[in-house]
Design a protein around this nucleic acid. Structure first.
Length: 281
DNA sequence: TCGATTTGACCTGC
DNA sequence: GCAGGTCAAATCGA
């Protein structure tokens, strides 16, 4: 492959990064078999692999089929059939904050569940946003929540959802293994706000977890955790005030799988972000 | 007074 | 018929 296209450049760099990460993992393993830092190296490997896979799929001439969903053609919201598949399901610990403004519209005691199931819909439903979510405390960990998302945000995302046009709250991204967030908190790194921008330009929920001490108020437990919702105006103001500059992070979006590869390649800013990561290896 | 939440009733799929 | 999902009136709080 030649390096005459941005995709080729990124692929080359990511391949180098992947090799470097593998090497780093080997070194860490050799230095200290039980080192938790190995998880970081593994995480980098996974991310690189993901980028490379996406790139290869793109360069193969196959384009991901655009989602069938179209905002203007969206049918009126219908009842979900029982067991309908969620667009995304996440498990969060201690918080249900995800950067969107949700309006609770129902609560139901579920058979065999100690805690009721809560139903939320996007606060911008009047604007045609049909996104809903279902929040349920997990059986194993009462302080943790299973959140199932249904529908897509068509309200142009968190910026639109937020009354001040602000950005999502500080939250730690869970890239799947939660190792980044945990490592970040442990190292005192800045708590990265990172919600993901979906392909329609709206924000899609990432897997969000609260880091133990990253942000005031985000880590609550037990009976008070549910009080921290984004419809709490005071909370929103506090969080936005604490982090006024959060905006879309294309790199994180991409790595989190919510930003299409084509969007990255077609947008110089997104591409620059990825290249920055690639050269960071 | 108005917007948000609560909660019982209703609707629908299995 | 039951269980889960949604509606909408009642209630609450700023």
């Amino acid at each position: 492959m030649t390096l005459d296209t941005p995709a080729a450049v990124v692929l080359e760099l990511m391949t180098m990064g992947q090799q470097s990460a593998a090497h780093l993992g080997d070194l860490l393993r050799a230095a200290s078999p039980a080192s938790p830092h190995q998880e970081l190296a593994a995480e980098i490997l996974r991310c690189c692999g993901r980028v490379i896979d996406a790139l290869r799929a793109t360069s193969g001439g196959r384009k991901r089929k655009a989602p069938e969903y179209q905002a203007e053609a969206a049918p009126p919201p219908k009842r979900r059939g029982r067991g309908a598949e969620a667009v995304k399901e996440v498990v969060t610990s201690g918080t249900t904050v995800d950067g969107f403004i949700w309006r609770k519209y129902g609560q139901k005691d579920i058979n065999g569940r100690k805690h009721p199931r809560l139903y939320y819909r996007c606060a911008h439903r009047q604007q045609g946003c049909n996104a809903t979510r279902r929040v349920q405390r997990t059986r194993d960990q009462p302080a943790a929540y299973e959140i199932a998302y249904y529908g897509e945000h068509t309200c142009r995302g968190a910026a639109a959802c937020h009354p001040q046009g602000g950005a999502p709250p500080p939250a730690v991204v869970d890239f799947g293994s939660n190792s980044w967030g945990a490592a970040d908190a442990g190292r005192g790194g800045s708590p990265a706000a990172s919600m993901s921008q979906g392909q329609q330009g709206g924000w899609s929920p990432s897997s969000v977890s609260a880091s133990p001490s990253s942000e005031v108020g985000l880590e609550l437990e037990g009976a008070h955790a549910h009080e921290w919702e984004w419809h709490d105006a005071a909370t929103v103001d506090e969080l936005i005030g604490a982090a006024p500059c959060y905006g879309p992070d294309p790199v994180t979006e991409f790595l989190d799988g919510c930003l299409g590869w084509e969007a990255v390649l077609n947008d110089p800013l997104h591409l620059a972000g990825l290249l920055h990561i690639a050269t960071f290896q």
